[in-house]
Design a protein around this nucleic acid. Structure first.
Lengths: 292, 292
DNA sequence: GTTCCGCATGAATCGATAG
DNA sequence: ACTATCGATTCATGCGGAA
């Protein structure tokens, strides 16, 4: 199966109209925050942020599959000593637009930006808002399981009576089964708090987005050959990770430098893959790039 | 200076009217979260939550000093597969009421409630919303500095223990300048993410949150002889910690059992302090209780 | 007195069943 | 159809008794 990369140079609101209905499995994006990145995106005033984003999210709702998920990385800025409310307003507005606000993950940035202010501490977390088109969506939880805590080693030696009793309440069916489940368990499901350091990027752009972040959501919400969209791709972290994980990718950005940079980088990855192939049919079937 | 404890049995909305304007330095509270089951616990329906809370927050705004801070611990529940929006709406409504929404701290609960569902992971964080009456407020950042390095977590965990011992090392200025400078350099300001475990078992009752949580905010936003208010004191964790830290406290609850329990516990602490005093003037000046 | 280990239980959430 | 109740699922922690 061929993996496709499609890049668009231009405004998201317009370029998204070129995508088909119900064609995307996962959207992961970090749009320009209000009043920030003035040089590149022109900066949206906090008061106009919701108004600016709603036409875009409307398109995203259209192109997302009913089983798909939209992960929005965002954090409100401090304006005149208090937190702006545009994220709150955006959530409310998107629900009216038809989105379900399924969950809010917390991205805890371990090495947050340094600084000192008299009235606040360093901001070391961001929101990862999960929106869905339908209440039923694809979620592959086993893909992101984490090692269980040390307490488990001791615990697994002996099962407490209470555990047996709790399991017992399910009368009759599969009593011995539960115990064996616990005995073999060395991994646990994660929570809705993600601990990731911000990447110390050596590149010449500003998007501090660790690869683990999109990788986690790509593993959780898609499988191979699914399609991942980033309507504000920036330096393309999401796309590059998704491409590497053998997902089809669609990226949009209105900054030519970003567009060129991502295109070059994806092509390099694809070339590398091509060179490492020995069989003809693999060469033929993989690594196709569609850059428009 | 005498430390005063004032307890009210009754509805917060009404009892708060008995407090003077601009008389409280810090409000730390965890109101009942919205509950769908109105009949069983008298919970507030999510749709009516904002309407229910606004009269109370109006009183809180009145009694808070201009230099004071209001910390609101809250988390929205999942209703019908998605997160409720009443917290978002509450923030917006409280701003209209005159509050400044200064900051949102994250309380990361490491031992969150277990469980597995097809569409979400365990919820392991809560909001700690900081509201202020004025853009200038008291904040004693040095009081909550944490050691740098691996021992930071351990130290944070022991903070409440240190409070009990009423750390004397600062007072006795026997340190040479070199050493104190060196010590200072080992500390860093915290961020807006707090890592604390929920306390499983207290003696007789279950505490809503660990003592470290109110202790942290009490240190950060008040000094000795300031006044701390909890309009939904519940089992009284905030009040007991504040009392131990030599802050005047005001507590309100409409559950007689809680009221009696907190009153008893505060009195026991005060009696213990009394018994440990040897000098007459200390006995005279401390430990007065005003229970109404 | 330390350290180790067993154990109960949390501001949870979903899906099925009952009224 | 809609709402209330109940069973099932599952992880980390502090406490108390034991070595």
């Amino acid at each position: 199966m061929e993996i496709l990369t499609t890049l668009y140079l231009g405004d998201s609101k317009e370029k998204l109209k070129m995508l088909s209905d119900n064609s995307v499995d996962l959207i992961v994006t970090s749009p320009p925050y209000a009043d920030q990145r003035k040089n590149t995106y022109g900066g949206i005033h906090p008061d106009q942020y919701v108004e600016w984003f709603l036409p875009i999210s409307k398109q995203l709702l259209r192109v997302l599959k009913p089983t798909g998920t939209f992960i929005l990385n965002i954090k409100e800025k401090v304006v005149d000593g208090e937190r702006s409310t545009y994220v709150m307003e955006l959530i409310l507005a998107m629900r009216k637009q038809g989105w379900y606000w399924t969950e809010e993950f917390i991205w805890h940035k371990k090495n947050s930006y340094p600084g000192k202010w008299p009235n606040r501490f360093r901001d070391s977390w961001e929101r990862l808002l999960q929106f869905n088109k339908d209440k039923k969506f694809n979620m592959y939880q086993e893909e992101v399981m984490v090692p269980i805590g040390d307490w488990a080693k001791k615990r697994l030696k002996n099962l407490s009576e209470t555990d047996k009793k709790r399991d017992n309440s399910k009368v009759g069916s599969g009593f011995g089964k539960n115990i064996s489940n616990w005995l073999e368990r060395d991994k646990a499901y994660p929570t809705n708090v993600l601990h990731l350091a911000t990447e110390c990027n050596n590149k010449n752009h500003s998007a501090a987005f660790p690869e683990e972040l999109p990788a986690w959501f790509i593993k959780l919400f898609t499988k191979e050959n699914d399609t991942v969209l980033d309507p504000f791709m920036g330096s393309g972290t999401t796309l590059i990770v998704a491409n590497r994980m053998r997902r089809n990718t669609i990226g949009i950005d209105n900054v030519p430098e970003y567009y060129d940079m991502v295109r070059t980088q994806i092509q390099q990855v694809e070339l590398y893959l091509l060179e490492s192939k020995t069989e003809y049919e693999k060469t033929k079937s993989e690594g196709r790039i569609s850059v428009r």
